[in-house]
Design a protein around this nucleic acid. Structure first.
Lengths: 335, 335
DNA sequence: ATGAAAGCGCTAACAT
DNA sequence: ATGTTAGCGCTTTCAT
């Protein structure tokens, strides 16, 4: 490894001088600067950022903890985050918690040990403790997509209650009275919002929510399949299903097909987080579209700001969502 | 920040002793160890891995450079890589090159500066130089999905030639003679393999390849749409299209629909990298399935091995792919 | 304008 | 079994 000392030696200057030309920290005479530049070139010198980080006490690194990067939702967030981070000179370390609080804690510990400058996390359900500690330590933290109570950190989430309400209303207007729900991991606050909106829409229509009609579809795709099957195979099955996650919706659609049922004739299916895929499925899926990229951008933005030392009341942003009507709800095709 | 010295002071021992209990590097008497543990607990001490890395000259970090994490192909690779890396105590820094050689170089430089222990990269077309330098420096490197000539590093790729050949043969057997191709970025070696297989299948059937039937669909989804449109709007349009990437296939399907054409009646469409989505599209898509997760696992495995100092002839693994027949090629539905 | 040298927090070689 | 201390490569204060 070639170090700053090697460069200094070859250029016949002190290490300080090399550092100065490297960082423009102090004026250096043209001829010396030239010699340094040449030495750097000749040796193929590359500053060691680990050493720099140790000294500077900042790593220009942020940690991103999501449940699973394979979910298109988090994929897009990751991309947005990485883009913005890069433009500001930050790198991002990717972590998948699988919504497992233990894994989340492990990652938080690891990242803190790595001296990341900030943390972006989509909290696993039922953790609290870890993230509260992070806040306690004073490490910059921004909550992504989920906002557990009792964690005093800025957050960017989806305002999915209103959209869910609208979606369920729409189903009710189509005449459905037994509407099933495939929810995410139990205990997640975003699921909670949606579930509440679901029940409210039902009650306002004079329908008493039936607990047997809500299932939790843990794991992504497989969870969606399993939940749809359970829902449909019980006595008094729903005539419509609302799934609260992209991959789960796909799983549900596959399961329904495999049971020989037609959508929307036998059972309507509406879902969460619209993707371009939804327009080419059979039938095209009615779904809630969420400004995912925007969420990612805002989150990293907030984090960078927090790292920059802007100490203010933690800000909470909830992004509005939109219902996209297609065919799977029973509507005739529009374009 | 609480350091090892703080712990030592509180426990009334030397920093060395703390380090020894931390790392189990040397035996420590039970009572002193106990005191150290208590001090660590009391202070909430967390070893500074930056300092540790500087000293140890290894960071337990690897860099992953892909064109775009949003592509389901690379998403899955990233997940596989992160999983295996984590189990071995490594963290992964995520980078999106957008297939831009300049960006790739930038990231390589950055990662090397960060002293990553190894690099996993899906090379951008037409770079060469950078990665050759990496090899020259002696930094562990494994090529992912693409294998540019002249880079002496281990690689894990898809053996997509045979599957492409089979796919095109299948189309020919359906009676198609004008078969369009939507290829990835020009110059990518994996595209090259597939294009060659395509032409070979054509020629063996006595069909002269028509250059106007192959288009390059750069950007993901949008690229696929644009390429499909161009292909179909020219005089003498193809009766079947083969797309060489997941998102591009989706784009092509959407474009075909928007043009009011039916699949497979008006134009057959077959694609690359099967995903669960393909079974619920209208029509279900015939496609090449690739062992993506496996590719990721093998790649990180090779890298870890290389980091571990196993200096051997660089290994090149090409994973076999499989054609999954559904309806979009014109076949009646099977299950 | 330049240099010498003191750390940043940690590990491990060298004492004892 | 334990402690002292010399670095790892860099930035920056303090001198000149």
């Amino acid at each position: 490894m070639v170090t700053i000392a090697d460069v200094a030696r070859l250029a016949g200057v002190s290490v300080a001088t090399v550092s100065y030309v490297l960082n423009g920290t102090r004026p250096v005479s043209p001829e010396r600067r030239q010699r340094v530049l040449e030495a750097i070139e000749a040796l193929g010198y590359r500053p060691n950022r680990v050493a720099r980080s140790l000294r500077a006490r900042r790593t220009n690194t942020i940690g991103l903890i999501v449940s699973n990067i394979v979910s298109p939702f988090y994929t897009e967030i990751a991309r947005a985050v990485e883009d913005v981070a890069r433009r500001h000179g930050y790198s991002v370390i990717l972590c998948n918690s699988d919504d497992d609080p233990a894994k989340e804690r492990e990652y938080v510990d690891l990242l803190l040990g790595r001296q990341v400058d900030g943390l972006l996390v989509a909290p696993a359900p039922n953790d609290q403790a870890v993230l509260a500690e992070v806040v306690g330590i004073g490490a910059p933290l921004v909550l992504v997509n989920r906002r557990p109570a009792g964690i005093d950190a800025p957050s960017v989430t989806m305002a999915s209650g209103p959209a869910t309400y609208e979606l369920i209303r729409h189903l009710i207007e189509h005449g459905h009275r037994r509407i099933g729900v495939i929810s995410g991991v139990p205990g997640s606050p975003s699921s909670q919002d949606r579930l509440e909106a679901y029940e409210r829409a039902l009650r306002e229509a004079g329908i008493e929510p039936d607990p047997r009609l809500v299932r939790h579809g843990h794991a992504q795709y497989e969870g969606g399949m399993a939940a749809a099957r359970e829902l449909l195979q019980q006595p008094g099955p729903p005539t419509a299903i609302c799934s609260l996650g992209t991959s789960m919706t796909l799983g549900a659609l596959v399961a329904i097909r495999e049971m020989g049922l037609r959508v929307p004739e036998d059972v309507a299916l509406v879902g969460y987080t619209d993707t371009p895929w939804y327009q080419v499925t059979d039938p095209p899926l009615t779904a809630v579209a969420q400004p995912v990229r925007r969420l990612g951008e805002l989150a990293i933005d907030l984090l960078l700001r927090s790292i920059g030392g802007e100490v203010q009341e933690p800000q909470h942003i909830a992004l509005p969502c939109e219902v996209v009507i297609r065919r799977s709800c029973g509507c005739p095709l529009r374009r």
